[in-house]
Design a protein around this nucleic acid. Structure first.
Lengths: 197, 197
DNA sequence: AACGATACGGAACCTTGTTCCGCTTAGCAA
DNA sequence: TTGCTAAGCGGAACAAGGTTCCGTATCGTT
């Protein structure tokens, strides 16, 4: 992590509030543009979307690649942080798991172009996949275990299997209108349920 | 195939001799530059290497991608054509097979960057891999079967297995100085030999 | 030898990543 | 509140690479 980030779960730190705000704005804008135009979208488009100058982007992210990586990590982070929050706020562990998986699927489908970045052997991208797993698997496991402990879901599978299952259902989404990954995942997650009968 | 190419095994046809010559020169120059600098080498470098202007490149290959594809096919083609030629000129089918496999390995190691092109989902690159197999497997089989028929090599494996074996030995070559794919392949091919004892 | 079609070279153009620098402004001190 | 100053900002300018265009040179034919 760079020098001006708080630890896990923190938010960009900086002397000046506007700088912090801009960095956040940029990450959001970049994410939006990446979804709309793919990860190859020009830096200028992101600057425009964020309403900032090119210089501002390059101060926060020295190269284009740094921005892509930051967006990816930012999204993984957001997804990870949502886990405990949902667990605390939802009516039941199962509902929390269900909602979290929706976020997760959003991320998977959205990252579309980011997947190719993961494969790339360009400098700086190689550790993203392991980061992804390291960060999200424990979160998924926490939610899943909580639901299992509450007797709401079957427990004859692992959190890893669940994540893989969801992930695989999302493969090839986007581009095939006849295939709704979100719906399939919903079916899968419904299938987890242990109905009291 | 474009409109001004002869059929399989042919060479570029064109009204004017200089145009034909230039196309050939370009393919060679591009291959050379790709090996030296990777498939991302600038078009200008290729023009310089070939000693022609940019316009010449773009007349023969409407886009950069067309050039890459043409080089790839050109090399597959050259490799394929070499098979029967070697069979006719070599001292024995086994020696022909051995020499052909050297060419094949050259191609594999050389295509290095081209491999990434094969994976790419950019327009125009998707059919290259199947072209590769369709064209080269029969050639390899012809040489292998000839050597087998002459009793020079063991015949308890298929040409496909041989190609896969050689291909796999070449994976990860280039970039690891401690690994010499060429030598390993030589060992493998030597192992094919049925020594009269 | 002359001529028309074909091909050539490379300057010019466009897009995109990156750098640079004068101007603005947040945060602090008096 | 008012200055002060360094952190930040915007965007023009630059660099690099793909692509286009067109005046010129060359080929093949008559």
């Amino acid at each position: 992590m760079s020098d001006n980030e708080a630890g896990v779960g923190g938010v960009a730190q900086s002397k000046r509030a506007d700088a912090r705000r801009n960095k956040e704005t940029l990450l959001d804008a970049a994410a939006k543009v990446f979804v709309a135009s793919g990860v190859d979208a020009p830096v200028r488009d992101i600057a425009r979307e964020a309403g900032v100058g090119l210089g501002t982007i390059y101060r926060h992210f020295p190269t284009r690649a740094d921005l892509v990586i930051a967006v990816y990590r930012h999204q993984v982070e957001a997804c990870a942080e949502a886990g405990p929050a949902l667990l605390a706020s939802s009516a039941s562990p199962y509902m929390a798991l269900r909602e979290w998986i929706n976020l997760f699927v959003d991320f998977l489908v959205t990252k579309h172009g980011l997947a190719s970045v993961l494969r790339s052997d360009s400098a700086g991208f190689e550790s993203l996949h392991s980061y992804f797993l390291d960060r999200l698997l424990p979160v998924c496991a926490e939610l899943f275990d909580a639901a299992a402990a509450a007797g709401e879901v079957r427990s004859d599978l692992t959190a890893y299997e669940l994540m893989r299952g969801v992930g695989n259902l999302c493969v090839g989404a986007e581009g095939d209108d006849r295939y709704d990954a979100l719906r399939l995942v919903d079916v899968l997650v419904s299938g987890l349920r242990l109905l009291p009968d």
